[in-house]
C-alpha cells in the first residue's frame, strides 16, 4: 500500500493537450475516483500513473519514490501496481488460475505459495470453483472478477481501475460495485477508479476528482461534490443541473426575456452569471416566468416536465399533475447556485 502524488503533470498527443497540469495527492489506503466525460483526460492520467504513457512535464511518485519525471521513467512492470481494464484483458489462452498466477510467477514466488495465493484471490472474487475454466467459458462479470483477482493477487501498492464496470449490464454493474467496496474494506488497498458514471464515483470513493478538458475542476468528498459543486461544469455533470446564462439584477436573475426570482439564501453578485439549478430544485407555480411545456415524462417516483427556454431545454422534476404540451406553466426556483462570470 502506498500513496500517490502527481505534481503539475502535462500530456499532449501531437498538438492536442490532453492533461494540462494536474496536481493530486492520494493518501495511502485512500479510494479516489477520477470522474469526467470521455476525453477529459482521466484515463490518460490513470495510464500515466500505471506507466503505460510517459509524461511531457511534471512528476509522479508512488510511495514516496519518483516513478516518472525529468529524471526518468520507471516502466510499468517495475511499479508494483495492479490494474483492471475496461475490456477485462483476461488472456484467452490461459486458464483462470493461470491468469491469476501470472504476476506471482513473474515475482518468482515458490510454487506452493503461488497455489495458495491464487486460491485465496479467487475466493475474494467468489470464483474458487472456476480455477480450471478457460476464459471463453466465462461471462463478462466473471471475466472482470478474474481480472480483479489477477490485479490484487500480487499485493500491489496501488490498484488502478479503468472504467471496470462500463462493459457490464446494469444489474451486474450494481453487484460488482458492491464487491469492489467490500474488497476495499477488507484489503485496504489504495485504489484509483476512473469512471464517467457519477453514481459509481459518488458511491465508492472517499474523494472524487471531477475532470474536465484536462484539468481537475474540483476534488472533494462525494457529499461536498454533490452539495456544493464549485463550478458550473461540476454542477452540470454531477447531479445533472440545468445551466442558464444571464445577469443578476438585485434579487432577480434575467435570462433572455425571462426573469427568475432568487430565493433567500442564494448568494448573488450583481452582473453576468451562470445559474445552475437541478431539476428537483425547480417547481411548478410560484413566482417566475411562464414557459411553454415541451413534453411531460412519467419517471415513476416523480414526473419530469421539459420547457423551452430560449434555445435550451429546462428540466423540472416534481409531483404529477395534469398538463398538455404547448400549455404555458409558471416555473420558479426553490434553490440554485450562481457562478459569476
Amino acid at each position: 500500500m502506498a500513496g500517490v502524488e502527481l505534481t503539475q503533470v502535462h500530456k499532449a498527443y501531437g498538438t492536442t493537450a490532453v492533461v494540462k497540469g494536474i496536481s493530486l495527492t492520494i493518501a495511502s489506503g485512500e479510494f479516489i475516483s477520477l470522474l469526467g466525460p470521455s476525453g477529459c483526460g482521466k484515463t490518460t492520467t490513470l495510464r500515466m500513473i500505471a506507466g503505460l504513457e510517459t509524461l511531457d512535464a511534471g512528476t509522479i511518485s508512488i510511495g514516496g519514490d519518483v516513478v516518472d519525471g525529468p529524471s526518468g521513467h520507471l516502466p510499468p512492470e517495475k511499479r508494483a501496481l495492479g490494474m483492471v481494464f475496461q475490456s477485462y484483458a483476461v488472456w484467452p489462452h490461459k486458464s483462470v488460475a493461470e491468469n491469476v498466477a501470472y504476476p506471482l510467477l513473474l515475482q518468482g514466488r515458490p510454487r506452493a505459495e503461488v497455489a495458495r495465493r491464487v486460491a485465496e484471490a479467487l475466493d475474494w472474487v467468489r470464483l474458487g470453483s472456476f480455477a480450471q475454466r478457460m476464459p471463453s467459458q466465462l461471462s463478462g462479470g466473471q471475466l472482470q472478477r478474474v481480472a480483479i483477482a489477477r490485479a490484487l493477487v500480487g499485493s500491489p501498492r496501488v490498484l488502478l481501475l479503468d472504467e471496470p464496470l462500463s462493459n457490464l449490464d446494469a444489474a451486474l454493474r450494481e453487484e460488482l460495485r458492491g464487491e469492489i467496496a467490500a474488497l476495499r474494506a477488507r484489503l485496504g488497498t489504495t485504489m484509483i477508479f476512473v469512471t464517467h458514471d457519477q453514481h459509481e464515483a459518488l458511491a465508492l470513493a472517499d474523494r472524487v476528482a471531477v475532470m474536465h478538458q484536462g484539468v481537475i475542476e474540483q476534488i472533494d468528498t462525494p457529499e461536498r461534490i454533490y452539495q456544493s459543486p464549485s463550478t458550473p461544469f461540476v454542477a452540470g455533470f454531477v447531479g445533472g443541473a440545468n445551466r442558464l446564462e444571464g445577469r443578476v439584477e438585485g434579487r432577480q436573475f434575467r435570462c433572455g426575456a425571462h426573469t427568475f426570482v432568487l430565493p433567500p439564501g442564494v448568494a448573488a453578485v450583481e452582473g453576468p452569471s451562470t445559474l445552475a439549478v437541478r431539476a428537483e430544485e425547480l417547481e411548478l407555480g410560484g413566482e417566475g416566468p411562464s414557459l411553454p411545456l415541451l413534453a411531460r415524462l412519467f419517471l415513476g417516483s416523480a414526473t419530469e416536465y421539459r420547457f423551452t427556454l430560449g434555445d435550451t431545454v429546462l428540466r423540472v422534476v416534481g409531483p404529477a399533475r395534469e398538463a398538455r404540451p404547448g400549455e404555458s406553466l409558471t416555473v420558479s426556483l426553490r434553490h440554485a447556485r450562481l457562478y459569476p462570470r
Binding site: A50, G51, L52, P75, P76, E77, K78, R79, A80, L81, G82, M83, F85, Q86, S87, A89, V90, W91, Y102, P103, L106, Q107, A147, R150, A151, G154, L160
Partner: peptide
Amino acid sequence: SLEEAARLSGASP
C-alpha cells in the same frame, strides 16, 4: 490491454 495487463503484472515488453 492484454499486453498492458502483462506489463502491470511485472512482465518486460
